[in-house]
Design a protein around this nucleic acid. Structure first.
Lengths: 245, 245
DNA sequence: ATTACTATTGACCGTTTGGTCAAGTTTTGC
DNA sequence: GCAAAACTTGACCAAACGGTCAATAGTAAT
């Protein structure tokens, strides 16, 4: 389809002599042609929305496997089924595309945290939080991997998020945990480190899937792996924190 | 020093006209000049050993921060304080240098596992294992990060290690854990998943140091962070597995 | 001192890569 | 139905990169 259409268009720079007049009258360069990125969402751009989604999805896969520097725009474009300039048309530079992908991911991070509230039962709250984090590792492993690579590399694209949103969240949820401990519902653990432990233990099923699959000699995405994983992590964390059920 | 010596050597290709005779009589190409990489160790090559160590150390730092594809040979060479061709002289290609770095890291991995033996006391054995893994995360965070990036990317350079050495190790140590459970010394947990959890919870202090530092608003390498981390992880895992102390 | 080997390095090269451009087509608003 | 805006894309480029080479310098054994 695309090829058929493309064949109609004739190339113009096919002058056999390789002189090329070097574009004497370049467009002013500075006005920048006002890259038309409009309000981003909105019904007026269904083509825009569709293509952006395709490109973002492809970019997610490639960034997850190879990181920012290892990913090539050509591979992302091919995976998305669009020519490379199209990608730049929608997202500007590779950096900006990466930042768009990261922004998507951070939204999901915060959502899962809502489970933990001081008025809830700790076994329910923390248990459900762990379950949802492991489910998330199974269903969106690529998001987790991109985040992991980003943090390992120093996290400079997410430092703002970490120092504001996430820090605040840890403080809030930490208060809940401290309140539970004060009420004798659990041991007086260090809330932040417990959260680090939960994050690590749950995200490892996305980030280190290759290792887990190799060691278990199983498909790491198999249901029984995730069931045993969930059970193990929930049991150890709850019992380890002295939370009765 | 190096510069002073270099200034003595005169360039030879500085013919002002840019013709360059194109090296008509190239050395046969095929005999390959027998890249002299000797037995690798040995006292006869103290220069070799020193330079290889410098380069490996620099490579470790750069690979840990940027991964295989993000690292440039120029940056590694600069960090090592040697010119780029020197790096190729000792290690061949970037790939091969990377594999050398990886090989170094895998050695450390196995060493730390020796702690776990069936005849030991589980609280001691597992507790010490966790302590040594966290210490390792503090002292060699770069090794952990390289390993993490490698696994996230699919682990193709370490798959052999994972499917043989590590799988065997997990099976062996798993037997020990099962034996402890059978003897009533701990709960009947799934050994492999407990190990995954321990690895995740300990390595996170190397791999995710940037996140931990940002959330805690502290230097993530500070002693008190590591002490609280160790205490938290040891307590939760031991208690969570029903191991009395 | 001669020889043989090891180590050092400036200059270079082919390829890959992110990004641009201008000419084209399609869609939208009126 | 037409003009403006949005979208598409082959061809291209400069910079960066991994890697090579041949000339040179240092070192050790005889």
């Amino acid at each position: 389809m695309a090829t058929a259409k493309a064949s109609k268009r004739k190339t113009v720079a096919a002058a056999p002599s390789s002189v090329r007049p070097k574009c004497a009258a370049r467009p002013v360069r500075g006005k920048r042609l006002a890259r038309n990125r409009r309000g981003d969402t909105g019904p007026a751009g269904s083509i825009r929305a569709r293509n952006q989604a395709r490109i973002l999805k492809a970019a997610e896969a490639v960034f997850a496997a190879k990181g920012l520097s290892g990913a090539t725009t050509a591979e992302i474009a091919q995976r998305a089924g669009v020519p490379k300039p199209n990608l730049h048309y929608y997202f500007g530079t590779k950096q900006q595309l990466y930042e768009s992908v990261i922004r998507n991911i951070l939204g999901l991070w915060l959502g899962a945290m809502d489970e933990i509230r001081p008025d809830a039962d700790p076994a329910q709250a923390i248990g459900n939080y762990i379950r949802s984090k492991i489910r998330y590792s199974r269903d969106w492993p690529e998001a987790s991997r991109i985040f992991a690579i980003e943090i390992i590399g120093g996290g400079k694209h997410v430092m703002g998020f970490l120092k504001t949103n996430l820090r605040k969240l840890v403080k809030e949820k930490g208060e809940a945990i401290r309140a539970w401990a004060a009420a004798g519902k659990m041991d007086p653990v260090d809330p932040a480190h417990v959260m680090f432990m939960i994050w690590a233990a749950t995200q490892t099923y996305a980030d280190f899937a290759a290792q887990i699959g190799a060691v278990l000699d199983k498909n790491p995405r198999a249901d029984d792996v995730f069931e045993t994983a969930t059970e193990t992590v929930v049991n150890i964390v709850l019992k380890g924190c002295g939370i009765a059920r």
